[in-house]
Write a protein that binds this DNA or RNA. Sequence first.
DNA 1: TACAACTAACTATCGGCATAGATAGTTAGT
DNA 2: ACTAACTATCTATGCCGATAGTTAGTTGTA
Lengths: 193, 193
Amino acid sequence: MSLRYALLALLNVEPMTGYDLYKQFESSVGYVWHAPDSQIYPELRRMERDGLLEGEEVAWGTKGRKRQYHVTDAGREAFRNWINTQLDYPRERDPMHLKAAYLEWADPESARSQLQAHAEHYGARLLQWQQKIKEIDGGTSDMLNRRLATVPAGDHDRVAAFKRFTYEGLTARAESEIAWAQRGLALLDELYA
Amino acid sequence: MSLRYALLALLNVEPMTGYDLYKQFESSVGYVWHAPDSQIYPELRRMERDGLLEGEEVAWGTKGRKRQYHVTDAGREAFRNWINTQLDYPRERDPMHLKAAYLEWADPESARSQLQAHAEHYGARLLQWQQKIKEIDGGTSDMLNRRLATVPAGDHDRVAAFKRFTYEGLTARAESEIAWAQRGLALLDELYA
DNA sequence: TACAACTAACTATCGGCATAGATAGTTAGT
DNA sequence: ACTAACTATCTATGCCGATAGTTAGTTGTA
């Protein structure tokens, strides 16, 4: 159900087509949330059906058409409602930690390369998220600047602060995963010396 | 697809019924992996169909019957194969961080209580996982002791070390989430002073 | 003995998400 | 003029998992 609110969040900034939204999820916004186009288009139709969005056909070239959606009052209210509602947390289900618990079954080299890959995966994420923080601090974040243009100047600090806060959480998580993987690599050295 | 391997991991220790496995996921093992019985029973049947398990009817009381499953050679091989295979990491999709990015839409009190709940959620997990580590260190972990009984004494350290390593990762993650939520609470105090 | 709690297993439905592929129009470069 | 890359949208299939409800037998206890 979060896809709906991710879409509302983006459409709150400016009207967009399904394809625009898809591209957002493929690039910068995708570092926080992702969805394939095959989920986006049907969800937009459902949201229009539910009165959260309104779409209008826009000409594209001579024969082409595209459908641009904008948020309705009901949509904004639904978004505000969601953001004020307590999430419920899913039960634990993490494949990498499940694996880790039975790593004595693995070949040491395989265990090593998987922990290495874990560290590298989060290393890549870490760089992306740190980059986002730099962009926020430097005022060069497109996403943020477009968002800021829609709110009064007095709220700018607040909006930027929450964006930064989000990425701080993600970088902290990445750092924690990297540290864990590295402890694992050290452990392998000990155990298979 | 990880459910299959979680079940194999448990059944590698000793034969169990679907209900036994369900109870495991409801209690201690559930802190690492969880599944409802409505997924467990069909998956066990599929695994038997695929030759990873063999089940036998066991009498229970006078008229009752239950089906106890044990792992086949093919099952053990499949498990070893899984544990040696690199995972692929899903795209980012985290509702709480999505929310955090738009927290300026929330009522300050709601934002506060949600961050509080975030900290409390991971606080509860943290206690459970720390408890697990204590049990491992003290040799009072049932799960681990049963597992250790099935491997040569020379491997005991290794088996225990990986279990501990798993819970260390989970506690580190919980601590990181708690710290993040607390930074968020401090931020709210600043922004809505 | 009556009842509650537990053991055991199964079924149905629904939403989320991945993967794959189909179709059609447009734009930019060679 | 061609064609590759991009824009735009849609459909189909299938797994995973959540939720809820059903049926039947057993055990412990008031």
